[in-house]
Every structure is written in C-alpha cells, then in structure tokens.
Design a protein around this nucleic acid. Structure first.
Lengths: 375, 375
DNA sequence: ACATCCGTAGTAAACGTTTGCCGTGACCTC
DNA sequence: GAGGTCACGGCAAACGTTTACTACGGATGT
C-alpha cells in the first residue's frame, strides 16, 4: 500500500536506552513484577548472563552466579512464561475436556491425568463442557491458542456422522499446531487420523458381569442399559447379549431396557419392571449409579438383595463396597485411563510411531450382591 | 562491561524484511502454525489491520474485514496467547491447588471453581499436592510464573507456626505479582495480609448435628473426631462440645475420640468402643467416610441403625442418601465454596475493598439414621 | 478555495525471554 | 613468542502480538 513516512521516520534507535520509559502514562499504580532486566541491573551483569545462570546450560563464573542468585532472591524474581514460551520452547499444558468433573469416575480420570502430567512437568487445564458441543468446539480452539501439548476429550458419546466430522476437524487442527487429540472412552472417528484413542473394554466387562450371573444359575437377567446410541451403552448391551448367547440363555426383549446412567432411571425402570410382574432373579445395571436406583426399588418392594434378587453394577465407584450389600461390579481402571492417555500423547514426541489405540481391560469385582441359585 | 563491537556492528536493519528467514537451520520438519503476519500477507493488509479486525476495537472497512476473515479461515489461524499476553493484557487462569481431586467433596469444590472461572472467561489449572508442602511451594511459584489471576489453596491443614509463615510468604509473593491467594477451608495466617479466605462453619455444623442427636433424646454420643490439630477437626470437636454444654449433657472423655478422616479409622474406633463396652446410643462421625466405617462396625456387631444406634455424618457426600439407612449428615456447600472463592478473588479487580473473609453456612440434612429415644 | 475532521490504514516500538554470534583475556603448545 | 584453545560475557535479533503515532484521501464547514 502507500509507503509514505519512510523518509520522515525518526532514525532507528538501537539498544534499550532509547525505549520509552515503562509505566509512563499508565493508569495502574500496581507494582510491576520484576523482569530479567531488573535482575541483570541489580547483579551488574547482562540479561544474557542472568538467563544462562537460571537455565544452567552455559558456563557462568561462580561470582556472577552468586550475584545473579542474590538479585533473584531479593527481587523475588520469577520468570515470565509467556516471554519464555515466545522464544525458547516451553512444555505446553495438558488439557482435559470433560462433561463434568463431579462424577466419581470422571474425577478419577482427572486424577490420573493430573498425576501423569505433573510427573512429566506439565500443567493440567481442566474444563467442563456440560455436554455442549459448541462449548467443546470453543474449548478445542482455546487449547490451540494455549499451545496445549495434548487435548483429552473424555466420556462416552453418540458416535454419529456429526460427531465424526467434529473429531476429524479437531484432530487435524490440533495436529497442525503440533498438538494431539486424545479420545478417552470414545470411539475413533475414522482410521488414519492423527488421533490417539484410549478406551476400555465395555463389551468384555459386561460379558464378564452377565456371565457371572448366568454361571451363578440365573437365567432371567434384567438389563438396565444406557442410552441407545451412546457408545458405551451400546457396547455394554452387546456384552450382555454376548453372554446370554454364550451361556445359551434366552434373550427376552422386555428385560433388555434402555435409559440414562442415573440413579433415577435405575429406580424407575426396576420399580416398573417389578410392578409389571416381570420375572427376573438378577439385575445387571449398566452403571453403579443405576444399580443404586435398582437397589432402592428392590428394597422398596420388600425384596432382599441378594436373597431374592442379585445385582451387578458397572464402574466400581468408591462407595460400591459400602452399600448394603457390598456391590459386585465391573471395575473400570479410570485413573489408569487418564494416565495412559497422557503417556501416549506426550510419548509421541519421542517415538512418533507409538501406539495410538489402546483398550484397557476391565475386571469383575465380586462382592456380596450376587447369590448362587440352584434349580 | 566491555563495550566492544559497537563500531563493527552491522548497521541496524529496519522492518521485517531484514530478518533471518524463519525455520532456516532448524531441525523440525513440523509445519509451523500460521501467524498474524501470514494472515496479513494473504489478506493483503498490514498486521495491524488483522489485529484490529480480530479484536474489533477499531474501525476496519468492510472489504478489509472480509479479506482478513477469509485468510483466517483458510490458514486456520489462531492467535498465540503467549504473544498476546506479552503485549496486550490477557486474563490469567485460576489455579486450584488441592490435595487430591479424587475425594468426593474436593471434586465438588473443583467443579465450582471451574464453573465460576469459565463463566468469567478464565481457564482453570488444577494441581494436586498430595499433602506435600514442598510441592505446594513449587506450585505457588509456578503459578506466579503463569500469571495466574488467583491461586486457591484448598483443604484443611494443621495451622502451626510453619503454616502461617508459608501462607504469609505466598500471600505477599502473589500480591506483588498482581495475583491473589485464596485459602479455601483453611484458616487465615494473620490479619492484614493480602489473602482472601473462604471457609465454612465447621463448628456450627457440628453443633447442629450433635444438637439434633441430643434433642432426639440421646445423652451419650460417641464422637469420631478428626486429627487433633487439623483446623476442621478441632472446629468440629469444638462444635460437639458446645452442643453438649448447651444441652446440659455430660462430656465423657472416652467418647471424645480422635483419628483420621478415613473409613478405616471410623471402623476401628467404633469397633473398639463397642468391644470396650462403652455405652453410647449415638455416633457423630466427623466425616461421612468415617460414618461409613462406623456403620460397618455397628452392623458387624449385630446392632441396628438407627434402631439401636443413631449415626450422623458430616459432608453430605453424594451417596449418603444411598446408604442403609440413608445418612443424616451435615451438608457442606462445597461447590459454592469453590464458586465463592473465584468470585471473591476475581471480583477484587472491580472493587478492591470487597470482602476477603467469608464463612459459608452448613445445613443439617435429616434422613433416616437417627432415632428419637424416650426415657 | 482552504482549513478541518473523520474514517481507515500502515509503521514500528514494546512486552520479557533465549541464544547465535562475536570478543576478550588467560592459559597452553610448539 | 606466535598461534590456538577455552571459559566467560555482552549485544541484539527473534518469538507473535498490541497499539501509539502518523498519514492520507475525501467530506464538510466557512
């Protein structure tokens, strides 16, 4: 465009001396944090020497080092990450994007993530989406701005067309920025995408749970499944049916129910099944929260657990062992899930050919909510 | 010191054209994320125009705006927070420093913090200390580097001399950096420090709980207290004694016990009290986890709750309502605690004279673990 | 016809680091 | 004693933004 002013431009000044004084004309009265230049001035050395002393990657004389350290102490100097990030490399944070931190299992994922990230010298950013895809979009964008080393999206989803497109978009955008998308407990959108997937064996876990019930002599198992379409829900349902088939038990349509992963849903479905006179000697709840509701409904109906009805849950929430009776359930390694996600995502820097799809096993924890029946 | 080289220095170049080409001589083959200069070049405008278009704080012609937006789209440009933070102001994150995110109550604090921070456009950093003061020191330092707008230290402590000194150090260091220390559920180290304290009424909550028991006709209440010296433990114990005094009940030394906030401790203390033949018709557990242990021990002894022994907890963990019987307990507004902490810390920017010490109330939640007795 | 003002655009300094490059003495080596 | 190596230290460019200045063309006022 117009190139005016070039000739009238004031002569370029070199060095710092010509700079406008800091704070001049600013409104804030707040004390400005000290910079590396303040330290250098106080120690009587150059900024380069201060930087090198603190980084410890270049020889500095004992005397200079001592002076710098003293200045750092007395000024309470701390480095400015933003400036550091702009020039030398800084390890970006790990971002955990989750529906809601409050859930007992999600809190454990968060703990695993934080721990592994901290072990590797990374900070953890955690954000809640409250299940809002728009918020998820915004957060991925934000994390890109933040130069997050990895973005972990946690929690089951409905893997439809739109979901796939969104994940592909995220994966490519993050990859282009040198970051990594990690899907935890959700399916991969498509093959050959720059995504890391860390999942657990929903289907296998459900298979174990139901097999345990069937092996204990039960034949009619009420399934309190999760939402249709939701990835984990569908998988657990498949495991339920697998087990029925494997043990030669009949699949009864009315016993194969669908609902949300809430206590209320478990309660209502169990109560209605009982009221409707459905026959079943066992309940497999697709989550421990659902099992809680089932337990309440069964108890309310005057039935004993496990005397008259056996119950198995899924998740192994911390208090499962404190229920009455202690709940037999499928343990999901939530903390390990979080740790693995971070390990895989950050490990790529060393070995770009590393795993990018792992499925962690689940384990049936046998407590006292299942009774063996004989015919 | 030596001022050599000044005369031989190459003539200063002006403008960007003279800069060393980017990436030249670098090893990484990774695609470099696009910058505002790339956008400017592609749109055929100056970087200033791009910046202004995106910030929207300066008039830009419709044509230029359109060209800029198109360039942003096609380059998948995202701003670089570090650069932005270095010049214009950027809202610093909120840092949550916590013993362990896994605890059911702490997870709720975290949720409250995240929500309030997000509502105010801040990111949340969460870090676990695992009760290590050295780690806490390191984290506060790290947060200073990160320019966190507020640093929240959450969870009960032993308020000794060393604690006070550490907190005062944190408070001053953070204050000097324009940040704010917030103590959540811990006592203030000293008056007139730049600290915000958000606590809840441990003493009052315990008073309510024990009063409820005494009002129900109980006279001998086993207190499963927290660790001696721990701030919340001492407060709850004081509330227990207050209630005894207020209701004219005798304080019996053997019934006033001390231990940790764990299920195991509650179990052992209750079992031992039972074995020792101590007489008590009610138990006040200083936390729901402790109550869990007490419940188990009582049940194991063949006693009925609340038929033979009444139990009251503290915290109102989510599953308290799912125990058998549903647990009467003291609800602590954990989520509100987190939200308030953020609100107060960030609110100071607007009104520096705002509150800096609030105590949230607790509420007795009456369920079914307490029985009224008559004499 | 000329001075003003407004809307829009570009230039470059500044933010606080890191680090490549260069310089200087001290100490070695034939 | 000339040349070389080494340990240490300073200068200034570069990182990617924002924004204070300056500039300019056209509309408006007199």
């Amino acid at each position: 465009m117009t190139d005016n002013g070039k000739s009238e431009r004031p002569t370029p000044r070199t060095g710092r001396s010509g700079r406008r004084k800091r704070g001049e004309g600013q409104l804030t009265a707040r004390e400005r944090p000290s910079t590396i230049r303040d330290v250098a001035a106080k120690a009587g050395v150059s900024v380069a020497t201060v930087s090198r002393t603190l980084a410890g990657n270049y020889p500095v004389s004992e005397e200079a080092r001592a002076r710098v350290m003293a200045a750092v102490e007395s000024l309470h100097y701390v480095i400015n990450v933003h400036a550091k990030a702009l020039s030398g490399r800084v390890a970006g944070p790990v971002a955990l994007v989750i529906k809601d931190i409050t859930g007992p299992s999600l809190a454990h994922v968060a703990a695993g993530v934080e721990q592994e990230a901290a072990d590797r010298g990374r900070l953890s950013l955690v954000c809640a989406t409250h299940d809002d895809p728009a918020r998820e979009d915004a957060l991925v964008q934000l994390m890109r701005e933040q130069h997050a080393a990895a973005v972990l999206l946690v929690g089951s989803v409905v893997p439809d067309e739109a979901y796939g497109r969104r994940m592909i978009g995220y994966a490519q955008a993050l990859d282009a920025a040198g970051s990594r998308l990690v899907l935890v407990g959700r399916p991969a959108p498509a093959p050959d995408m720059p995504v890391t997937v860390v999942d657990y064996d929903n289907r296998g876990g459900a298979f174990q749970a139901v097999s345990h019930l069937l092996a204990s002599g039960h034949r009619r198992v009420l399934f309190l499944g999760g939402e249709a379409g939701l990835s984990s829900g569908d998988e657990r349902r498949a495991g339920y049916r697998d087990a029925l088939r494997a043990h030669g038990a009949e699949h009864i349509e009315e016993l194969d129910t669908t609902g949300t992963y809430t206590r209320a849903s478990g309660y209502v479905r169990t109560r209605d099944a009982l009221r409707a006179g459905l026959e079943f000697g066992a309940v497999f709840a697709a989550s421990d929260m659902v099992a809680l509701g089932a337990l309440a409904a069964i108890r309310e109906a005057g039935l004993d657990v496990p005397g008259e009805v056996s119950v198995v849950g899924f998740d192994d929430v911390p208090f499962a062992t404190d229920l009455t009776p202690p709940l037999t359930t499928v343990r999901v390694p939530y903390e390990e899930l979080g740790r693995t996600a971070v390990r895989l995502a950050l490990g790529r820097a060393d070995s770009p050919a590393g795993d990018d799809h792992v499925v962690l096993g689940t384990q049936l924890i046998i407590r006292q909510s299942v009774r063996r029946v004989t015919w």
